[in-house]
Amino acid sequence: MPRLLLIEDDPAVREGLQIALRHQGHQVDTAATGRDGLDRARAGQPDAVVLDLMLPDLDGFEVCRRLRASTSLSIIMLTARGDDFDIVAGLEAGADDYVVKPVQPRVLDARIRAVLRRIGRAPAAVQSHGDIVIDRAGLIVTKSGRPVALTPTELRLLLVLAESPLQVFARDQLLRLVWEQDYLGDSRLVDACVQRLRAKIEDNPSTPVYLQTVRGFGYRFGPV
């Protein structure tokens, strides 16, 4: 059973979402504050965190950054519709996906399951591109021999792109393949994830070699 941590300050929303997620077959731990959330994440080792951005003590962005610093669990943030600044800031802080509040429980569940599925489906093979070695069986990525810590979403994106080097992937395509979202998904999810991935695997993230932008169209892996 997937273990979730729900960090949400409003008691009614927290209780409602807990009931709904439990009903969908998740094991749900809850926290009402950012600090409590961080403690519980450390102690409970959940598979994914559902994180409200508006928290009384530490805001959601800070919680996100601190979680990212120590773990690679999946993070889904709860935001208000159209608060674009929040969404961008949240993705930059390391969130994998977001849902807009009020959320239909089915939608939240689908997103959680998509995030959790990102680990663990890949053909067994070891590829090397330049300094980077991708072990698809062990799900390990190393750069110049040193392992790179990637979140499931980042790993999945890298696997998809590197599976067909030089092929250009449009953002909506990547949203489908990595986030399992319809074309309506927010393409900033892709951009933010590419940025984070570049920061981890490129020598110089501003002149990327592995993850190249094809302006106005999308991204491609290489040429290395």
Binding site: D10, V13, E15, G16, A20, K101, P102, V103, P105, R106
Partner: peptide
């Protein structure tokens, strides 16, 4: 905007 928070709580349990 104010309606959104109670609504989020209610909407969460509609499936149940």
């Amino acid at each position: 905007h104010e309606l959104r928070t109670p609504l989020a709580a209610m909407l969460a349990v509609t499936d149940v």
